[in-house]
Design a protein around this nucleic acid. Structure first.
Length: 312
DNA sequence: CTCTGTGTTGAT
DNA sequence: TCAACACAGAGG
């Protein structure tokens, strides 16, 4: 970059603040060097600090000055300029550019501010919206609040990912009904459900409705199951009914579990071998129980995503 | 009236 | 693709 260009670059920046100097320069009353000296003076520290040690003005990508001291943000796509709005500070404008760049181009696209954990999350936030919506959010200033909401919700979800014994309402109807008003003092108020795992081991869970959380839950027996199967958040749990062709109405329920894809991925990376209890390996003399005509239901149970196979 | 954002140009 | 620049006209 040649010296004169540097001067012009710098001056164009300084002129924003002092329009009278711009006019003076134009009419020849003052030259470039004089203007520079003036702005480098300590009394103009606010202006000088925006010039780095090489005399280059520090410029944010996609950021343009406005006559009144505000800052505009813009980004180009297929020979067309997309205006992102005007902002009070050049940092705000630079952020607007980064947000648009992430959606319009990619997370890896050149940007004003380095990627952080938060900005990586931002990409997934953006994926929930269309181009047009993201641009509108940047322009009308609602982007930040929406992103904050997303982050708050994400944090909540992460906390809820702890394995807990609740069975959400979605499950109602798949399993036997629970008495609405428990009659007192009778043992048969309890509904116990039995399942066989793929190793033909029997598991019994108490199944009831919790008014406080408005949900159906597995209680007694469930925590032991979670512990035994070493279940982690996001693991998949499958329930299905195995019919008995020889003796109708004599089938049985099966419960199976599977590590989430992310856990499997992590094990592979670390070179960790599945332990013997893992349900992904089955001994030859213990074939996996399978059902012939299964209907697939996706739902959320125990705070994790569940794919429930129910045969009818 | 204020000030945004478009039209336009020239450079990279 | 980009920013600089001027200013029509959007918007209060």
């Amino acid at each position: 970059m040649c010296f004169e260009q540097n001067h012009n670059h710098l001056l164009s920046r300084l002129f924003r603040y002092q329009p009278e100097d711009q006019e003076a320069k134009r009419s020849g009353l003052i030259n470039t060097c004089e203007i520079m000296e003036k702005y480098m003076d300590s009394r103009y520290a606010n202006y000088a600090k925006e010039v780095d040690s090489y005399g280059y003005s520090q410029k944010y990508k996609g950021v343009v000055p406005q006559q009144n001291g505000n800052w505009g943000a813009q980004i180009y796509t297929n020979n067309q300029r997309i205006w992102l709005g005007t902002f009070k500070t050049e940092v705000d404008a630079a952020i607007a550019y980064d947000r648009a760049s992430m959606k319009l181009r990619s997370v890896d696209a050149p940007r004003n501010f380095q990627l952080t954990k938060s900005t990586v999350l931002e990409a997934s936030f953006q994926s929930h919206y269309t181009m047009e919506t993201i641009l509108a959010m940047i322009k009308d200033g609602s982007y930040q609040a929406k992103f904050d909401d997303y982050q708050r919700q994400k944090r909540k979800d992460d906390e809820k990912d702890d394995i807990n014994p609740s069975v959400e309402k979605a499950n109602y109807g798949y399993f036997p009904p629970v008495p609405d008003e428990p009659s007192h003092g009778f043992a048969n108020d309890e509904v116990n459900l039995s399942f066989y795992d793929t190793k033909r081991r029997l598991w019994k869970f108490r199944y009831c409705y919790w008014k406080s959380s408005q949900s159906f839950v597995f209680t007694r027996g469930w925590n032991q199951f979670v512990k035994d199967k070493k279940l982690m958040p996001k693991d998949k749990i499958t329930f299905y009914y195995q019919e008995n062709l020889e003796m109708p109405n004599m089938g049985f329920w099966v419960i199976d579990t599977c590590m989430s894809a992310s856990r499997i991925g992590a094990s592979l990376k670390l070179g960790v071998e599945d332990d013997e209890d893992s349900l992904t390996d089955h001994k030859r003399d213990e074939p996996m129980i399978q059902t012939s005509s299964a209907k697939t239901h996706g739902l959320k149970l125990f705070g994790v995503h569940i794919y429930s196979l129910i045969t009818r």
